[in-house]
Amino acid sequence: MSRQQTQRLAVILITAVAVLVFIPVLLVIFYLIASGIGAINWEFLTAMPRNGMKEGGIMPAILGTLILTFGTAIVSMPVSILAAIYLAEYAKDNRLTRTIRMAIVNLAGIPSIVYGLFGLGAFVLAAGFGTSILAGALTLGIMTMPVVISTAEEAINAVPQQFRTVSQSLGATKWQTIRHQVLPHALPGILTGMILGLSRAAGETAPILFTVAAFYVPTLPSSVFDQTMALPYHLYVISTQVPGMPLSIQYGTALVLLMITLTLTLLATGVRTSVRRRRDW
């Protein structure tokens, strides 16, 4: 085989493999939309489940997921952004900094089920919060920290160094400089990371299994110490634990969950590209 033939064959094979990677992604999305769209209507989105969850809607699960996602943001956002500021602006190249970076790498790699165990041991039991929104949000919040910290640090580092020098040459303190000349410009990037983190949190099942998720509760949660239903766990429950569950409800639930996480993912990418286009430095 000549070199040109090898070249041509290689390109064909590489392209074929790429097709093998990307086509299933589209297939999954379209298949899920096609199978689930029929179940989705106003009642499905806004009503309580009825008749052993085999009829009615999935509103408590949707609401629970939104509440948990919001709680995750509250837990994770402040500490993650501050940690990113530490790494980008204050950290010297010393042992503490290296230890922190190592810790973040490891947090990012810890399996979500292990976060679930930690949440159970630390928040549900040791702290005495019980199986509750509080325990679940804390667990999910900690789980999203590495994503948010890494993207926020990158966003902060992308702000040109000269803004800092100029600001300090004008008599601003280090914190004033960060507050007025760094964070505003890093904000879109920080937001992107935050939304990506939340998208992941919204879809996670394992960390909420033992910390907050309820199989079925007839009423909506009224405080952070209540349990709640949540979409990912609900999907798990109705697809494996409830015999005779209509397939359309299963597909519909999966589709709603996918729409929530994909909306967040696309929102994050949207923020990123629109801001990249707009800024003038």
């Binding site: 000269q162 020098t165 100029v166 600001s167 300090q168 040459s169 004008l170 601003a172 410009h185 430095w281």
Partner: peptide
């Protein structure tokens, strides 16, 4: 740094309006 102020070799406006560039130093003070 307010008493002894620096102008750099490359023009370095801060992103923002003309006005905000001028009020930044005094505001931070």
């Amino acid at each position: 740094r307010r008493r002894i102020s620096m102008v750099f070799a490359i023009p370095t406006p801060l992103p923002g309006s003309i006005r905000s560039n001028l009020t930044y130093g005094p505001q931070m003070a």
